[in-house]
């Protein structure tokens, strides 16, 4: 499966209501060690309620200047969240989440405040 096919898909909850757009896919390098780097396991998806596109990497990032620009881009991405892979029920033209899915903070670990 090719990732750009997954990105931009609509994300629906168990009732079929749109909860946002899939804007990114999060991997964790904790799998079986390969030749040089451990394998990258799909951890979850980043869902954005606002815009369908990520923009310039401001979201999920500690970059916060120039201040006005950062605020504007944050506002465009207000309320994005992470959903774990095991909370995904099915993928077709959209991504269907399980009834029990949990919304997690999309922040990258080193940037926690």
């Amino acid at each position: 499966m090719i990732l750009s096919d997954l990105i931009h898909k609509k994300v629906l909850d168990a009732e079929g209501t749109v909860v946002g757009n899939l804007v990114d896919v999060r991997f964790v390098i904790d799998g079986a060690p390969g030749q040089l780097l451990a394998s990258a396991r799909l951890h979850g998806i980043i869902v954005s309620r606002g815009t369908a596109s990520t923009f310039l990497g401001y979201e999920r990032n500690s970059a916060n200047s120039p201040f006005i620009l950062a605020k504007f881009l944050e506002w465009r991405h207000r309320g994005s969240f992470l959903v774990r892979w095991r909370d995904i029920a099915m993928i077709d033209d959209a991504v269907h989440l399980r009834a029990s899915f949990q919304r997690l903070s999309p922040n990258l670990p080193q940037n926690r405040s």
């Binding site: 310039l56 990497g57 401001y58 990032n61 500690s62 970059a63 200047s65 120039p66 201040f67 006005i68 620009l69």
Partner: peptide, 27 residues
């Protein structure tokens, strides 16, 4: 615009991100 933004990104720049004065003029 992309240069202004990356010059502020610590993932690229570490401690060499733009200072306040540069960002003021940058904006």
């Amino acid at each position: 615009l992309p240069i202004l933004i990356v010059a502020n990104d610590p993932q690229y720049m570490g401690k060499f991100v733009n200072g306040k004065a540069t960002n003021f003029f940058g904006m």
